[in-house]
Lab assay of single mutants.
Amino acid sequence: MSIQHFRVALIPFFAAFCLPVFAHPETLVKVKDAEDQLGARVGYIELDLNSGKILESFRPEERFPMMSTFKVLLCGAVLSRVDAGQEQLGRRIHYSQNDLVKYSPVTEKHLTDGMTVRELCSAAITMSDNTAANLLLTTIGGPKELTAFLHNMGDHVTRLDRWEPELNEAIPNDERDTTMPAAMATTLRKLLTGELLTLASRQQLIDWMEADKVAGPLLRSALPAGWFIADKSGASERGSRGIIAALGPDGKPSRIVVIYTTGSQATMDERNRQIAEIGASLIKHW
């Protein structure tokens, strides 16, 4: 058993032996400061991975655009179909130039040979490839079927209504393609630790998130040596930015963190910096 498999397999085991986890309101002070700095709403939640207890939250039940963070949920739905014998990670999917949409750094290189379902999930999560996400959405029946999958998990909040890139429109008060921090954190925890997916599929999902290559300026920039993080970021119109993550010290995840912001006029660099500073406060007061 690899170190990674050891880590995921023991998450339920550690729940019975973990020390009490204490919240630190200092992080919420930073979240509120980020709102002031960005001139935008910020949603935040910090969840204990083992118990599911909410440690801190700010606007946990307000809607925010999901942006590309939905791609983790999408690959969770794909893995659920794999577990049920309805899909194979090794199945190759062929597509054409007409299928390519904006920001497809991986799929645009494989027009001649296509990509496997496994490769598409990797591209969608680690590189946020939009065509990969659309191709995967097609395999499960489209955005409405992803919403149905989430409903069956008990998440009646999170919804996907459109495809890439239209889902990134982020119109104020538009509930399409949105979630709430509390709903996203709970759903992510179920995917990573619950019985919905097999152990192998849970491991695969967290491996893809751990290999994320496009979230460096966010929480990863504040991470001390030896800490673990598996994450997925997102960005969209109207100053929207977000990240969902499982992270913790000693090389294993122990908390879920979800951060969303929307409605800012700030630059992408400034949005990144504010999220990184929230992460730094979280780690300092861990």
Rank of each mutant, 00 (worst) to 15 (best):
Q4V: 13
F6T: 08
R7P: 15
V8M: 13
V8A: 12
A9T: 15
A9W: 14
I11S: 09
P12F: 12
P12R: 06
F14V: 15
A15R: 01
A15D: 03
F17I: 13
C18S: 13
F22D: 15
D33E: 15
E35A: 04
L38W: 07
A40V: 07
R41P: 09
R41K: 13
R41W: 05
R41E: 06
V42G: 12
Y44V: 04
Y44H: 01
Y44N: 01
L49F: 11
G52V: 03
K53P: 00
I54T: 10
S57V: 07
S57C: 09
P60A: 15
E61A: 12
M66I: 09
L73M: 07
L73C: 07
L74I: 04
A77E: 07
S80T: 12
V82K: 05
V82M: 05
A84I: 11
A84G: 13
G85V: 05
Q86S: 12
G90A: 15
G90N: 15
R91C: 02
R91Q: 05
R92V: 14
R92A: 09
I93E: 03
H94Q: 13
Y95L: 07
S96N: 15
S96L: 12
Q97C: 09
Q97K: 15
D99R: 08
T107S: 12
L111I: 12
L111S: 12
T112M: 12
T112E: 14
M115R: 04
M115F: 00
T116G: 02
R118I: 08
C121S: 04
A124C: 09
I125S: 00
S128N: 03
L136V: 05
L136D: 00
L137Q: 01
T138R: 13
I140R: 02
K144I: 10
T147N: 12
T147S: 07
H151C: 11
H151S: 15
N152I: 10
H156R: 10
T158M: 00
T158Q: 00
L160Q: 04
L160C: 13
N168S: 04
A170C: 12
P172L: 10
N173Y: 10
D174G: 04
E175M: 11
R176G: 05
P181F: 00
T187S: 12
R189M: 11
K190E: 11
L191R: 00
L196V: 15
L197I: 06
T198Q: 11
I206Y: 15
D207G: 14
E210A: 13
A211C: 09
V214N: 10
A215P: 05
A215R: 03
A215I: 02
P217G: 10
L219I: 14
R220Y: 00
S221P: 07
A222V: 15
L223S: 05
L223V: 14
P224Y: 02
P224C: 02
A225Q: 13
G226V: 03
W227C: 03
W227E: 00
A235V: 04
E237S: 07
R238V: 14
R238E: 14
S240E: 08
R241A: 02
I244P: 01
A245R: 02
L247H: 01
G248R: 02
P249S: 04
D250Y: 12
D250P: 06
D250A: 13
D250F: 10
G251E: 08
K252H: 14
I256N: 00
I256A: 03
I256T: 00
I256V: 09
I259V: 09
T262Y: 09
T262M: 10
T262H: 11
A266Q: 08
T267K: 09
T267I: 07
M268Y: 07
D269L: 10
D269Y: 12
D269A: 13
D269P: 08
E270K: 10
R271A: 10
Q274R: 09
I275N: 00
A276R: 12
A276T: 07
E277L: 11
L282R: 01
I283R: 04
W286M: 04
